[in-house]
């Protein structure tokens, strides 16, 4: 589909351009809703649509008032703080436990690998509302409902599958003869772990941690059941904002989140390339 061959018939040409048009429309469908939010967040009036002034590119139609609202509103302040605190600690827990488990799962001798992997990544498969309901019941029983530790543990559980999967993927191409070579040269298992295994899996661990961070940062169903108002995070605040009093502050927050996800996306892409380079896989 790269380019039309010189012998293409007119019908082929029509079909080729129709196809490109269809693809263009789908890309438009994917990206337009995200792009459209950005100008709307500079709306001077408290609505979710383009005003006549905005369309006329009149500077009066635009303002930063929703950004100002975000930066001066204490609800949003605590939401940002909660989001980062919860995401930070749940990332720490899930990255540590997930990496250890991935190291174990990748060993040839590991028994019942399929079953155990299935159990370990089950938090990713079970619908969030079911995890939320179960955790709500169980965490209330043991006094964790409505507390920061409760929310952090819940998010760590939801995020570990992503760490396990990304780190395991890094270990798939791992050349065990490297460790044997190190041992034959006199390195202790600990030393060869830190000098050989760790540098190789580091990109996988970091991208797993990023996945874990995003999972917690974007999660809103479980936290609404396991948390209480004190643990209100950015997506939760957005959810109740949309339900209760819809204001373009939500769009301002959304714009900042889009920029944040572009940054994370670039970071993950850089890590992926570095990983491929390190392991000697040239990008195909």
């Amino acid at each position: 589909m790269a380019a039309l061959p010189p012998y293409a018939s007119p019908l082929d040409k029509i079909w080729h351009y129709t196809f490109l048009l269809i693809c263009g429309l789908v890309f438009f469908f994917l990206i337009f809703p995200i792009i459209v939010i950005i100008p709307l967040s500079f709306n001077a009036s408290p609505y979710f649509n383009f005003t006549a002034k905005m369309l006329a590119l009149d500077p009066d139609g635009y303002s930063l008032r929703w950004y100002q609202d975000f930066f001066t509103n204490s609800n949003w302040h605590s939401a940002v703080r909660n989001s980062f605190v919860i995401a930070f600690f749940s990332t720490l827990i899930s990255t540590f436990l997930g990496t250890l488990a991935a190291l174990g799962l990748s060993r040839e001798e590991f028994p019942f690998r399929t079953t155990i992997t299935g159990i370990l990544i089950s938090p990713m498969i079970v619908p969030l509302i079911i995890s939320a309901a179960g955790m709500f019941f169980f965490y209330s029983r043991i006094g964790l409902q409505g507390t920061f530790p409760g929310v952090i543990l819940a998010h760590a559980a939801l995020a570990t599958p992503f760490v396990v999967i990304t780190v395991t993927a890094t270990l798939v191409g791992f050349d065990n003869s490297l460790l044997r070579a190190a041992a034959s040269l006199g390195a202790s298992p600990t030393r060869s772990f830190f000098q050989i295994t760790v540098p190789i899996i580091t990109p996988g661990v970091i991208s797993g941690a990023l996945f874990a961070f995003i999972t917690s940062y974007d999660e809103v169903v479980v936290i609404m059941f396991v948390g209480s108002v004190e643990q209100r995070t950015i997506p939760w605040q957005m959810f109740s904002g949309i339900r209760e009093q819809i204001s373009p502050t939500i769009l301002a927050v959304a714009t900042m989140l889009i920029i944040f996800s572009i940054m994370l996306l670039s970071l993950i892409e850089l890590l992926r390339r570095r990983n491929e380079r390190l392991r000697g896989i040239t990008p195909s």
Partner: peptide, 19 residues
Amino acid sequence: LVLLPFWTSLLVRTSAWIA
């Protein structure tokens, strides 16, 4: 263009559709 929506917060995309 496919990955950006994938990485964008679900709440952001839902509020975009409301708008």
